[in-house]
Every structure is written in C-alpha cells, then in structure tokens.
Design a protein around this nucleic acid. Structure first.
Lengths: 200, 200
DNA sequence: GTCTATACGACGATAGAC
DNA sequence: GTCTATCGTCGTATAGAC
C-alpha cells in the first residue's frame, strides 16, 4: 500500500518520542544516550537524527507531546470537578503530582527542560509560550469558578494564574524531596487563599 | 611555618568550590568538566579528587557553601525591613531573584541540585533538610510579623512557610522564562495573601 | 528512512613522582 | 596534597550502503 511507509514513519517517530520521554524522565537527559533511546524504541540511533536532527531536537519533540497531553488531561479533570475543593484538588493533581504509569517523571522532565531553556534563548521562548498557555487556561477556569460561586476575583485572572502556577510548581518541588511536607489538603488550601475564594 | 600547608589546603578548597559554583551555575553541571573547574581555580583535576572524591562530591560542597551564605543574607535583609511590604519584598529578593555578581545562577544551581537529588536518596535527604531549615527560619519570621502586626496567623507557621517557599520558587521559575510575567509587586501580593495579612 | 560502522572528541578517574 | 600523564570509556554525530 502507498501509505505503509508513511505509517511506518509516524510509528517510528512515536516510538522514539515515547522512549525518550520515559528514559529522559526517569534517568535524566544527560544520562541517556541516543543509542539507549533508539534501542528502547527498537530502532537505531540513525533514526533519531533522521527524524529530529539532534538529541535536543528529540527533547523538544517530547515537550510538544507532553504539552498537548497535559492540556487534555487537565480539561478532563477539571470538567469532572464540581465544587471548589474538588477543583483545586484536581488542579493540584493534574499539574504537580501525577502518578501512575508515568510516575512522577513529569516534574523532573519539566525541570530538565527548564534548565536547558534557561541557557538557550530559542528554547526559553518556547517554554515561555508553554507557561503562557497554561496560565491562560487556568485564568479562564478561575473566572468561571468565581462566576458560579457568585463572587468575583480579587485580582486580574492572569495574575492569579501566575501565582497559582508558581504555587503548584513549588509545592511539587518540595513534595519530591519530602512528601510529608506537602499534603493534598495543604495544597488546596494554598490555592484557595491565593484565589481569595477560600473559607476566609 | 607549621600552618602554611593547612592554609594552602583550605585555600585550594575554597578556590575549587568558588570556581565550581561559578561554572556549574552559569554553564550547568554536565557541561563543565573537572578539568575546567580545576583550571579556573589554578589547580589541576587531581586536586578535585583529593578534596572531594568525585565530581559530585564537589557539587555537594558547593551546596553547603551556598546554604550558609543564603541563610546569612536572608537574615540581614529581613532584619533591615520594618513593615510588611518591605519584608515580603526582601523575602522575594533574597530567595528568588538575586542579582549582582552571582547573577541568577542561584536558581539554576538550585534546580540542578534538585534534579540530582530527585534521583539519589542520600542527596535527597540532604536537600530535604535544607528545605526544612529554610522553612523553619521563615516560619519563625512569620510569627514575629504577625505579633508586631497585632494579628495572628490563619494557619500553622510551618504550613505557611511551605506555601510561601513554594510560591517563591515557582515565581522564580516563571520569571526566568518570562521576566515580565512576574513583577516584584505581584510577588509581594502573593505572599501577603498566603499569609492572610494582606490589605484584604 | 533506516541500518552498520566508525570518526572524533571529551570526560571521569587513576597511577605514580614529588 | 598536588602535579603530570594517561587509560579506558562513552557519547554525539556522520558516512555510505540498502
């Protein structure tokens, strides 16, 4: 069939990205060779260069993949939550403490990307846009929450989302070092007090 | 003199740690070779292994050095601030947006350490203790603030310091990618609303 | 696009003299 | 403790056949 080679190409690309996400996240970008990624994807390192040009190109592809996944996950989680407590908890769960098949590789990969971006302007631009998107989505959600709660937000929604995103990231960092220091309940309380929608 | 060799030893150690802090912070741990560190310290790589055993041992020494420095800096800054606005601002400045000679290498080195610690239990323990210390110091300060303000804290001080530390870290991360997204004023407002001591 | 094979460089770490 | 010299290894990336 004429489309077999296209399918195979897409398949290889997907395999490589998946393998890279798993290995980079669990072992770290620098500790993982292109050979290792290719091997896990049942390919050879040549395929990495044919598809992504470099090891860093592969890292970027992983980022793009996770961005869309995360957005989708967040939307599902948040739509399912009805009251404020459930919403804040869902937010915390989605952005900072994912468990399950991917483990907590999420935050580690995020930090890995942040570090690279901190030193490379092109990457920095890309990550900045990523944060912008996340903040926008959150800001939109906050406005809805306030509306359904009958109250109004104390500050501009985009400022609020900056603060909330910061809180989520920072709690994730601490939680990874010392899980007991950050309970789900504490996270929820923190978010609510930033929003000014808490119990007071 | 009998102490010359001891002095020289201490001097070499200090040179190596300083050089490592500068290079690791600006270029990243993985991008910097032990030879490069040693060269900047006017020594050779053998000295690194004689003093620290490994490249990672050197990283740990850098961490210890910065921990004490940061604590001292924070104390000075906070003692100089009198009202709540000045205090929250000093907090933000000390922990997340240091500029000057060290540039913003601080946060990058911190994240570098975090990433290593996330994968190594011994290091994780050490970093957890570091966070604990920071939180304790902040918690102590918060109690004083509340006392002088005549009000009381809404939550236990150690929970508050967890939230505030999270906010500071998270804002630092975003600020590095997109400085305009995090104003000093916003940071101060965020801290105050977590503390429940804000304007409202 | 994918493979094998390999060039080429760099790195961490050690040995041994001083 | 510090130096010079060096070993062995591993990594990224490329060349060229298929």
């Amino acid at each position: 069939m004429g489309r077999t080679q296209l399918e195979r190409k897409a398949d290889t690309r997907e395999r490589l990205v998946r393998a890279a996400a798993e290995l980079f996240g669990s072992l770290g970008f620098h500790s993982v060779s292109t050979d290792a990624v290719a091997a896990r994807a049942d390919r050879t390192s040549g395929a990495v260069y044919a598809h992504f040009g470099s090891k860093q190109g592969l890292l970027l592809a992983v980022l793009e993949e996770w961005r869309s996944e995360t957005a989708a996950d967040a939307e599902v989680e948040l739509d399912a939550a009805t009251d404020l407590d459930a919403r804040t908890e869902a937010l915390w769960r989605t952005l900072s403490s994912r468990t399950g098949e991917r483990g907590d590789a999420w935050l580690m990969l995020e930090m890995e990307l942040w570090l690279h971006a901190a030193r490379q302007p092109e990457l920095r631009q890309l990550l900045a846009e990523r944060y912008d998107e996340i903040r926008h989505e959150m800001a939109h959600a906050f406005e809805e929450w306030a509306a359904t709660a009958g109250s109004s937000l104390a500050s501009p929604p985009d400022e609020m989302s900056t603060l909330v995103l910061a809180l989520l990231l920072g709690l994730g960092l601490q939680r990874r070092m010392e899980p007991e220091s950050v309970s789900d309940e504490l996270a929820g309380r923190g978010i609510r007090s930033l929003l000014g929608l808490g119990a007071g």
